[in-house]
Nucleic acid binder design. Structure first.
Lengths: 346, 346
DNA sequence: ATGAAAGCGCTAACAG
DNA sequence: CTGTTAGCGCTTTCAT
């Protein structure tokens, strides 16, 4: 019924409870021989530490918090799954924590959250991870955290992180569009307080530059990471005297909005206009045509971050790690129409 | 920092810790006057019981499990949010538990899960909640649970539940289509092991009957609750010698697939064919045109179920409760085309 | 109706 | 390197 306890293992291995505790928690100071004996007993008894007891007596609850400020259900769930798989594996608990990344007392809110539940540490996802003032405060409160950030390479700023190269992926998508022959490529920006938005814009601009295509102000439209802004932005783009032949939405939800806008105008995607997204969410697969996008494994990224965090908590040194989203070409992108009519008919 | 403890409250209120414990856990045997005093102290000290300590010493961990077998991220998250809001409110923890509802050892898997984490009880969502053999076993193991089921009215079968009238909502959608003038309405079924699929089919058939429209075998297509089956099913429907003028997908994902199929065939929705879904998920809002659907508040439904469960655990008597999804008419449904050409052109 | 004592399973702070 | 002694904050006995 109730699984074996520390004492059971201790008895079985002929050592004290404390020694078992040490082994289980990976402390160095145990003779290899003793460690083996304990490990064997753990195995035989299928011992799993009781999180509640551990949390109650220890300095922290062996539970981490996953902090997010994101409206996208699919994304949240993917992150949660990644975090869970690491937590399950390492015998940690997980608490989900939505928050307002723009709150001025962000660091204090999080500190209270950590203290109330005696959390061991936090995984900070974007855009929370980008509020640097809050990070400083959190560090001052001595709260362990690992960030997930959008950056081309290791920031080496003293805070552990997993960095995702959004710029590179956006570059790849734009190059794909350029290679198809598009010259006028619209860009629908994501929320300004996401660093990823700037990185993606940078990738877009650099690709344009590398292909000798001058960037045009009127083709870059502000918005947030939501369907409606994609819809509205694309509408504006398509209403231009000289509309773009391709539109790159800063994420799939924006791109889905752009797709809907094109269709609502009577345009055919990809024949009249190509559309690309970013993220590889269900939206990108469940539209018609399916969207060309950049695959970003939020689950794997967060799992890595979670493992790093738990390693940090255990006092280990960790190295930052990078991820690259990869281009996924699907039906929503194709060469532009010859020269003739590519205007709407509605 | 760390919040007030039971002893703090006890001292403040001038009673013993045990008395505070009684009040906090809503036991009867406390004089109203004493109870008031304790409650005031709780308020003043902003006392919140420590879940870990509670779980460690008590017979159960003051944590419930939310059990699901569903591929739909949006749906899962909505349920989780509902459960969380009830749990936070009532000082319970929450564990998410995906499972295979078709496993023969389902009840035993869940029992082990409950025992390992010393869970207080389970909220069973569909289709797990419909494996009646497993329910019997769970009850035999004395594991408290509350089910969410698809039924027109209270089943009164001795197990507490929240029931959702899928039949009624499907009826409403079909009537909507019939009133628009559709006579040939395709129906894309959801997975057979979901009772809701049968209920929705029933609603569809009853609406047809009430409008004197004979049901046609070739218009009802089997499938699962996934985009691809919606796509394939709709393709078959549209390839019929006499294709339907409207298609009702058993959920939004199926409907999104049907929408994609129609569009991939060059048809215009809703002018060439109307499409309706079920669930009011983001898919239904983020397509073009947006889908007519039935709004089903999974968050609220699960929150209710969670509150019922916690009440049960506390020894209270609970009454079953029903929910009705409501029709949401959007752009994907319109009257059928006159008599002329309503075939595809691709 | 209330309280005192014991202990849930683990880790912290010390010994040795 | 290993063991001992105390608790963590709560609920369970069992008294009163």
């Amino acid at each position: 019924m109730a699984s074996a306890t520390l004492d059971d293992v201790a008895t079985r291995a002929g050592v004290s409870a404390k020694t078992v505790s040490r082994v289980v928690n990976g402390e160095r100071s145990v003779r290899p021989e003793t460690r083996q004996r304990v490990l064997r007993a753990v195995e035989q008894l299928d011992y799993r530490p009781n999180l509640l007891a551990r949390g109650l007596s220890g300095a922290h609850a062996y539970t981490i918090g996953l902090v997010y400020d994101n409206p996208n259900a699919y994304y949240i769930l993917a992150m949660q799954q990644g975090a869970l798989s690491a937590c399950d594996d390492l015998n940690f608990g997980l608490q989900m924590r939505p928050c307002n990344s723009k709150a001025s007392a962000l660091a204090e809110d999080l500190r209270d959250f950590v203290h109330r539940s005696r959390l061991s540490g936090l995984v900070l996802t974007t855009p929370v991870s980008e509020r640097s003032a809050a990070l400083q405060r959190l560090a001052a409160y001595k709260i362990p955290f690992v960030r997930i950030v959008s950056a081309a390479r290791d920031p080496h700023d003293g805070f552990p992180c997993v960095y995702v190269d959004d710029r590179d992926a956006a570059y790849a998508i734009t190059i794909h569009l350029l290679q198809l022959g598009h010259q006028r490529i619209g860009f629908l920006r994501g929320g300004k307080h996401h660093h990823a938005s700037a990185e993606r814009l940078r990738g877009y601009k650099e690709a344009l530059r590398d292909y000798g295509v001058p960037p045009r102000k009127e083709l870059m439209i502000d918005g947030d990471y939501v369907f409606d802004d994609g819809f509205r932005g694309a509408r504006r783009l398509l209403d231009l005297a000289e509309p773009p032949t391709a539109i790159f939405g800063c994420n799939d939800e924006i791109a889905a909005g752009a797709l809907a806008a094109a269709q609502s105008t009577g345009l055919h995607v990809p024949y009249d206009v190509s559309i690309a997204g970013f993220e590889d969410s269900p939206f990108s697969r469940h539209s018609w045509p399916p969207l060309t996008t950049a695959r970003q494994r939020a689950d794997i990224i967060v799992e890595r971050a979670t493992r790093m965090l738990i390693a940090c908590i255990g006092g280990e040194d960790v190295e930052n790690e990078g991820f690259n989203p990869e281009l996924v070409v699907r039906g929503s992108t194709a060469p532009p129409r010859p020269k003739s009519r590519q205007r709407k008919r509605a």
